[in-house]
Computed example of a mutant assay.
Amino acid sequence: MQENIMTLSDGRKLGFSVYGDKKGIPLFLFHGTPGSRIWFLEDDYIAQRLGVLLIATDRPGYGLSDKKVNRKILEYSSDIEELADYLELDKFSVLGVSGGGAYASAVSHCLTHKVKLCILVSTATPFVDGKPSKAMSKENRLAFFLTNYFPWLLKLVNKTQKRLIDKNPEKYKATLKKGGSHLSEWDNEILLDEEVLENGVVHSKEAYRQGVNEVIYESKLLARDWEFKLEEIKTPIKIWHGENDTLSPVSEVKTMEQRLLNVETHYIEHGGHFLTEKDDVWESIITNKPQILENTLIPLL
């Protein structure tokens, strides 16, 4: 993993990590909410083997990236365009996981001339009237409720979690390992993997590096109008989503799918929210093949 920081035109710092084949096909990775540029404990051997360059970014206020006051989802496209120019990339593709799906969609909407493919994995979906779907787990719905009406309480919860990650990461891992009834069987099984847990600690520590305020603010952003129309996205979109995802209900994704102009969907039977943690699914996503029969790359360029 190669750590990097660039200075944007407005003076803010933007942090990013580089994985895979350094001369490969460029694919930007957008983390969930909360999240960070840390996607792997070491380099990604699958991306290396397939000839894909992975560029994972920290959004403003996360990890190494400076905060941006009153930022909007659409504005992140300007940061990515500057980063692409800095890396001398004329064309590239984007992949957003969970809350990062909103940003991958926004970048594709704004940078049609540069983005060749938009991949949405376990993606967040626009809320209707600012309210999460009743198909979403009650725990997740409660978090969004607290974000809007009792942010001070959610801030306290997140501060407690940050303190646990910083002071007692083993206890944090033990907590994750217990899973919960609000998660699918798929996700609870994923959380028994020691490498996944170790990566989760590093990933989360970076997410909260600058504090917890950005997590709460971004949750509000996701619950509001995203300020662009999904049906106006011209970039080809590939969706990968678990049928048993309790954090981002598949029913809402299928509704979103109907609004997209150029979309191909892959719904994973029994799949939960943590799709990218399984090597075979991850390889399927970056090769754009529901089953791995041969190492044929997705048309990123």
Rank of each mutant, 00 (worst) to 15 (best):
Q48I: 10
D58A: 12
K178H: 08
Q210C: 05
D129A: 12
V107P: 05
Y149Q: 14
V281Y: 12
R71A: 04
A174L: 11
I298R: 09
T123Y: 00
A143F: 10
V263P: 00
L146N: 14
P60V: 07
K159A: 06
L154I: 15
P169A: 15
I233Y: 11
F92R: 07
G100K: 02
I25V: 06
Y19Q: 05
Q258N: 12
K134R: 11
K220D: 05
L146D: 13
L146W: 13
D280W: 09
L64E: 06
F127E: 07
E75H: 07
D245I: 03
N70P: 00
D66M: 02
L164P: 03
S181N: 12
F28I: 05
A104V: 04
G20N: 06
S219P: 02
L146T: 13
E283W: 03
A56C: 10
V128P: 04
K162C: 07
G271W: 06
I233K: 03
D279L: 07
L154T: 14
V69N: 11
R163Q: 14
K173Y: 10
I285S: 06
N188A: 13
T33A: 04
V121C: 07
T265W: 01
E3L: 00
M136A: 11
F28L: 04
F92I: 01
V157H: 13
G63H: 04
D129T: 06
G35D: 10
G99A: 14
G100R: 12
E214H: 04
E294T: 13
L247V: 10
F30R: 07
L192P: 01
I73Q: 11
H113G: 05
F28K: 03
L221W: 05
K72D: 05
A56R: 03
L27T: 06
R141D: 12
I119W: 01
Y62S: 02
W240Y: 08
I46Q: 07
S133R: 02
Y86R: 09
S108E: 02
T33M: 01
A47C: 08
K173S: 14
R37T: 02
S251E: 15
C110A: 15
Q210D: 09
L53V: 01
E185A: 15
V212T: 11
T57N: 11
L41E: 12
I190G: 03
R209V: 01
T296S: 14
E82G: 10
T57H: 09
N188W: 13
L197E: 10
V128G: 01
K134A: 14
G211H: 08
L27A: 00
T265Y: 05
D187F: 03
T175L: 14
P169I: 15
G200Q: 09
K91F: 09
V94K: 05
R12Y: 01
D166H: 08
K72P: 03
L41W: 06
Q161S: 14
Y172D: 01
F16R: 00
G96L: 08
S184D: 15
E252D: 15
E227I: 05
S98N: 12
G63L: 07
W226D: 00
W186F: 11
S9N: 12
N213A: 09
E232G: 03
N244Y: 07
L111M: 07
M6G: 00
I80C: 06
R224Y: 10
L27N: 01
I285Q: 08
I55V: 13
E185W: 06
